[in-house]
Simulated assay, not measured.
Amino acid sequence: MTTQDVYAKLKSLGIELPAAGAPAAAYVMSAQTGNTVLLSGHIAKRDGKVWAGKLGGGISTEEGREAARAVAIDLIATLHAHTGDLNRVTRIVKVMSLVNSTLEFTEQHLVTNGASELFVEVFGDAGKHARSAFGVAQIPLGACVEIELIAEVR
Rank of each mutant, 00 (worst) to 15 (best):
E104F: 15
V71W: 10
S101N: 00
G48V: 13
S101W: 00
R46M: 15
E117M: 06
A115T: 05
G56I: 13
I73D: 03
S101Y: 00
E107W: 01
F105C: 03
K49S: 13
T83E: 08
A67I: 06
L75I: 07
W51E: 15
S116I: 09
E62P: 02
N113I: 00
V71C: 11
V71F: 10
G57W: 01
W51T: 01
G53H: 04
M96T: 14
A77M: 10
G48R: 07
K49T: 11
A81Q: 12
L55H: 07
S60V: 06
R65M: 14
G64F: 11
A68D: 14
L103N: 12
A77T: 04
G84H: 07
I92Y: 03
H109V: 07
R46W: 02
I73G: 05
I73V: 15
L86C: 10
V50M: 09
A72V: 10
S101D: 00
L75F: 08
K49H: 06
E104W: 15
S116Y: 13
H109L: 05
A81T: 09
A52G: 09
N87M: 07
N113L: 06
L55I: 14
S60E: 08
M96W: 01
R69Q: 15
E117I: 03
S60H: 04
L86G: 11
T106S: 08
A115N: 06
T90P: 07
A68E: 11
H82K: 14
S116T: 11
L55G: 03
D74C: 02
L118Y: 14
S101H: 00
L98V: 04
G114L: 02
I76K: 09
T112A: 14
L79E: 04
D85F: 04
H109N: 12
I92L: 06
K54A: 09
V111R: 03
G48C: 12
G58E: 09
E66N: 13
V50D: 06
R69K: 15
N113S: 07
I92R: 04
S101F: 00
A52S: 15
L55K: 02
T90N: 11
N113A: 03
D85V: 05
V89M: 10
A67C: 06
K49D: 11
V89P: 05
K54S: 07
A77S: 15
V89I: 14
L55Q: 10
L98Y: 05
N100Y: 00
V93R: 04
K54Y: 05
V93P: 00
L110A: 06
A81R: 11
G57Y: 04
S97N: 07
V71Y: 13
T112L: 01
T90V: 09
G114R: 03
L75D: 08
E107N: 13
R88L: 14
W51S: 13
G114N: 05
T78K: 02
L75W: 12
K94Y: 02
V99E: 12
V99L: 09
G58C: 09
L118H: 12
D74V: 02
R91I: 02
L118N: 13
V93E: 15
K94I: 00
L79D: 05
N113Q: 10
T83W: 03
I59V: 10
F105P: 12
V93D: 15
V71S: 11
I73A: 05
R91A: 15
E107H: 06
M96F: 01
V95M: 13
G53C: 04
G48H: 08
T83M: 04
V111K: 03
S101Q: 00
A68P: 14
T102M: 02
A115K: 01
V111F: 07
